[in-house]
Design a protein around this nucleic acid. Structure first.
Length: 428
DNA sequence: TCTGGGGTCCTAGGACCC
DNA sequence: TCTGGGGTCCTAGGACCC
């Protein structure tokens, strides 16, 4: 197929790691490279990464651990608790390797990076080089999809994942494009989720090809909004989504956990909220922002119908934006006072901050002027100490002295090979 | 017994204003 | 009894992503 003149020049690659978390664990464990292996979510709740061998055993994405425990006990399955410190570290190395071979990249997620290859030659070769270098230096297998739009690059990547032969699929000027679109179910198109695909199926659209050829844009716009329309254009080879570089400044930051046990005491709730608030505030300062809103939420164990099911939520808007841990903790604790109800059980708890301003570009409230310099100095000192002396060396007393009383299950964690001096991997 | 966490974007509808 | 129309801003909630 020949692309319209105006879009001929665009080229995107999507490089995606195969079962990333499992692959990270396997870097240090040559003995399990062909064993069925999974990585569990926080609290050892459910499977969030599966090796091909584990998929063959019939383990689904999101499958709760208690359903596969037996396989684990029979030693037919290797199981790890999530070790996000390790995965984040490997992820940075992964995107750095791509940057060394492609000039413009967008780190899209922990295991996926887009590269803008516009204007470069021999793209399939380049894709193969990227794949080989990551495998060589990191021992992480990847797939590469190349196409004139991001949606098509995603689609090409998915096909490469399914293929047993090709790690790189290039759809630019490909005579197989129609077939590729036909092979892709509508719900597998990037940006078309369950709700949208159900609507499209009512129109008789079953595949990416059907969608691309559907000739009524008004209906698509009404059903799927303007985003749906953009996705359709991308399938036609018309690029609507560019690389997004400035993605590192978040617009909201949250921290939430599901705990191993139900929590009933207000004091425990406060301690948890204080800790979560410390974490989000630290992240907020790292990206040099201030926030003007903080909210907390909590709910009971939704799988236990003997408990009163509730979704509790409280939010407060601050007079002056801040990133001061202590200010935010005191506000968050006020919210706990408002939210807490005696007798309710709390299993999942979260803190979220929103409504961000740049550190050096915001308006102090006229009636409540506020010395931000002092704030900044105190927080800088706190961050420095925690950076060099270890996380949580210096913290608010509200955070409690140990986290033992409310914990997460993490029974199958691998060592912190790369992020702790005590657990460094011995390459000898 | 045991079922994750962290984001973004879009839209409809309400509040408010003139 | 009659009871507009248009605009903006904000928020809650849905949908999607990994």
């Amino acid at each position: 197929m020949v692309w319209p003149e105006t879009f001929m020049n665009k080229a995107f690659a999507l490089i995606d790691c195969n079962c990333f978390y499992v692959s990270c664990e396997r870097i240090f464990r040559a003995d399990i490279r062909t064993r069925p292996t999974i990585v569990l979510s926080n609290n050892d709740g459910c499977a969030i990464a599966r090796s091909p061998e584990a998929k063959s055993l019939g383990i689904k994405m999101g499958e709760p651990y208690f359903k596969i425990k037996k396989l684990h006990e029979q030693k037919k399955l290797q199981v790890f608790s999530a070790n996000f410190a390790l995965y984040t570290n490997i992820s940075k190395r992964f995107s750095n390797i791509i940057s060394s071979l492609a000039p413009r990249v967008e780190v899209y997620s922990i295991d996926e990076t887009f590269a803008d290859l516009t204007g470069l030659n021999n793209l399939t070769d380049l894709g193969l080089r990227i794949h080989a270098k990551i495998l060589d230096e990191l021992k992480i297998p990847t797939c590469v999809g190349i196409a004139p739009t991001k949606v098509l690059a995603k689609l090409a990547n998915k096909l490469a994942k399914k293929s047993s032969k090709s790690n790189v699929i290039n759809l630019i000027d490909s005579k197989h494009l129609e077939l590729a679109l036909k092979m892709t179910a509508i719900e597998d198109v990037w940006g078309i989720g369950r709700a949208s695909s159900e609507k499209l199926k009512l129109l008789g659209i079953e595949t990416a090809l059907d969608f691309k050829n559907f000739d009524n844009d008004l209906i698509i716009q009404r059903l799927l909004s303007k985003v749906g329309l953009a996705i359709k254009k991308e399938l036609q080879g018309i690029s609507c989504f560019d690389l997004e570089y400035a993605a590192d400044r978040k617009k909201s930051i949250m921290c939430s956990r599901t705990f191993a046990q139900d929590i009933y005491e207000k004091s425990a709730l406060k301690e948890i909220v204080a800790n979560f608030t410390s974490d989000v505030a630290c992240e907020l300062r790292r990206q040099k922002s201030l926030c003007k809103e903080i909210s907390i939420y909590a709910r009971a164990n939704r799988f236990n119908d003997k408990l009163i099911q509730h979704k509790s939520f409280e939010k407060i808007t601050l007079i002056n934006p801040t990133s001061n841990t202590f200010t935010l903790i005191s506000k968050a604790l006020e919210l706990v006072d408002k939210m807490y109800q005696d007798g309710l059980s709390y299993k999942k708890i979260g803190v979220q901050i929103t409504n961000f301003f740049d550190n050096d570009n915001y308006q102090v409230d006229f009636f409540y002027p506020y010395d931000t310099n002092r704030d900044e100095k105190v927080m800088k000192t706190l961050d420095q100490i925690n950076l060099f002396e270890g996380k949580d060396k210096l913290k608010s007393l509200a955070c409690g002295l140990n986290r033992k009383s409310w914990s997460m299950n993490r029974n199958f964690k691998s060592p912190a090979y790369l992020t702790s001096w005590d657990e460094l991997f011995n390459f000898g």
